[in-house]
Amino acid sequence: MADGRLQGRKVAVLATDGFEQVELTKPVEALKAAGAEVHVVSPKGGQIQGYNHHDKGDEVPVDRELAQASAQDYDGLVLPGGVINPDQLRLEEAAIDFIRDFVRAEKPIAAICHGPWTLIDADGVDGKKMTSWPSLKNDLRNAGAEWVDQEVVVDGGLVTSRNPDDLPAFCAKMVEEFAEGRHHDGRAEAGAGTGETRSTV
């Protein structure tokens, strides 16, 4: 059921082969239900291969190749997990530049499971309170993040969760933060809520 909170907003979902299927499809469903226009952006065109844990899942069509995408065209960014997906994206300079542009513009970002890996390379975790798949804990801490084991954490427009079980909470907070818009020094530029930096269990 559409609630219209994201009407007129455009959101990019950056992924490539090896993404965890539900970590892409469920956020896309939630964003579209809230009225957003959503583009799956990838370094490659055509289709990208999803996974259900270690088994191949469905292919998802790419809406826009990364070479033709700009962070200026979008109001928010989603980073799904899956081990292979962010590991490959970290080797793509254009993908890291794309994410870094969202970080620098203080646009809201939602990253789940292994998704926050790419934020390390894009200078997007230093000083942030966040969570992730447990194996990323030391990587994120070494990059300056405060890592916590919580269902969903929100800090200045950055939404993070640990695994697919957290998707209901992740999607709810993602829509809320994307509705608030750009954040400056932890405060939302416009929209409902205070926009203050906070964490949520």
Rank of each mutant, 00 (worst) to 15 (best):
M1S: 15
D3G: 14
G4N: 15
Q7V: 14
Q7E: 15
R9I: 03
A12I: 03
L14N: 08
T16D: 10
G18N: 10
F19M: 04
Q21P: 00
E23N: 06
E23F: 08
T25C: 01
V28K: 11
V28Y: 06
V28Q: 12
K32A: 13
A33W: 01
A36S: 03
K44G: 07
I48K: 00
G50F: 11
D55S: 09
K56E: 15
G57E: 02
D58R: 13
P61C: 04
V62Q: 03
V62S: 09
D63E: 09
E65T: 14
S70E: 13
Y74G: 14
L79G: 00
P80I: 12
G81H: 07
I84S: 08
R90A: 12
E92F: 05
E93Y: 03
I96K: 05
F98S: 12
R100H: 11
F102Y: 06
V103M: 04
A105T: 03
K107F: 05
K107A: 04
A111K: 14
I112Q: 00
D121G: 06
A122L: 10
S132K: 02
W133G: 00
N138K: 10
N142R: 05
A143V: 04
W147E: 01
D149N: 09
V154E: 13
L158H: 06
P164Y: 02
D166F: 01
P168N: 05
K173N: 08
V175I: 09
E176L: 03
R182G: 06
R182V: 11
H183Y: 12
H184N: 10
R187E: 10
G191S: 13
A192N: 13
T200Y: 12
V201C: 03
V201D: 12
V201H: 07
V201W: 01
